[in-house]
Design a binder for these strands. Structure first.
Lengths: 228, 228
DNA sequence: GACCAAGCGGAGATGCCATCTCCACTTCCG
DNA sequence: CGGAAGTGGAGATGGCATCTCCGCTTGGTC
């Protein structure tokens, strides 16, 4: 809905509600921007207090504007989710069915790697009974069509299905989660490996685009994190 | 160290400390058993209070016997980790290098799927500066040898390394984590897929041992969970 | 330029939950 | 049977996120 660069600050609210005062609307935008950044970096678990301070407004303002975290999540991710769906639909137009699938696969993985919040919204699904759920449900059939097309072309193994896709992305997400500081692009290594597993057949392995962690990096990776 | 079925209840403690009174030792065993069960089912995050009640003893007893969760974790998992290491070392003796690797790969995945605590101890590594870290460090070279052997035999792709193994297991772990109640063996599907990615070459795909989730199951899977 | 509704900030109330202590009581064992 | 060892569990402690409240500021309107 909202275009990132929309030149129209006001309007947009539900009919019947009067528009926000200019300064309030400005703060609202700041909150969304701050939330976008913190969600991307630290996941949906960040506190509204954090977001408020990062936006340079008081906590009260945050709670006045967004009843709960849900509302803020929707305001932040509606765009990004739509974009991903669009991307899946465009991939169907790719000349080569396998390449269309593979590119979308990698592009999704990149989105999810770069935005922890997006990953949590679409793949962890906790934040459930919202508009986000509806978006997730639009993604699955688009992916399904991509898979079928590549299977009919004979290059994707026959036994994968639409629900496999998000679960595989979920698996890649955990690599990103752990290796974030040490090798933020490590996911590429495993996504290529998995794509090789998805091919109907192949002679040589596809070269992996990222080297393996060495033992030090591995230790650092394993030593991080507890929760999420 | 401790044999599960050891007929000798006492002894074993550090030299210089007198052995525990019989009832105390009994409670200690109960605590370890309860911890083993709860760690396996709900992960290392369970509270000592929970464990104590589950063991049928008071919380005070738990804290008197184990200074912190670490100590309890070690008492519970030393065995299991040793067993996994032994398994890796035995896999080197398998007649077929690839089969030795693949069997160990699947066996590990199964261990990790069936015991969330083990998974967290060996793959999440948070619980860091303990004897567990040392065990993790014994596992890596054993796995490395398995990989090299399969590569020399020409059936494992050349570009995988020892550190890839635990990261892949970590990825499988997240599937188990999410699908636990819906399809606890779903990891088999993805572990087979990944093994197909690890092969140096192949004609047809290996049949996947577990069907994909249907849309309902998928929704349930995604709807669970938040933390840990 | 003055008025007041709208908005602001942020200290602190509230609630939650895990860790760990303490001591009056019970049990073991020599 | 006596004293040392062990027990249990209520509650103290501390951390942490959510959300409220109200005295103060600001925007915009006449």
């Amino acid at each position: 809905m909202r275009r990132r660069t929309a030149p129209t600050p006001p309007a947009e609210s539900a009919p019947g509600t009067r528009p926000l005062r200019a300064d309030a609307e400005r703060n609202r935008q700041r909150l969304i921007a701050a939330a976008r950044e913190l969600f991307a970096r630290r996941g949906l678990g960040v506190t509204l207090d954090d977001i408020a301070h990062h936006a340079g407004v008081g906590v009260g303002t945050a709670y006045r504007r967004f009843a709960n975290r849900e509302a803020l999540v929707e305001a932040v991710f509606e765009d990004q989710a739509q974009a991903l769906i669009a991307r899946a639909e465009h991939a169907l137009d790719h000349a080569d069915p396998w390449d269309g699938l593979a590119e979308f696969f990698q592009a999704s993985a990149r989105h999810f790697a770069e935005d922890r919040g997006l990953r949590e919204v679409l793949l962890h699904g906790t934040h459930g009974r919202t508009r986000m759920a509806a978006l997730r449900e639009r993604l699955t059939p688009a992916v399904g069509a991509l898979l079928v097309r590549a299977q009919e072309d004979g290059r994707l193994r026959d036994d994968v299905e639409a629900t496999d896709f998000p679960l595989i992305q979920l698996m890649l997400g955990v690599v990103t989660e752990h290796s974030r500081e040490v090798a933020p692009e490590l996911w590429q290594r495993y996504s290529t490996l998995i794509l090789d597993g998805l091919r109907a057949e192949r002679a040589a392995p596809t070269p992996l685009p990222h080297r393996a962690l060495d033992l030090d990096e591995f230790d650092q990776t394993m030593a991080r994190h507890h929760s999420s």
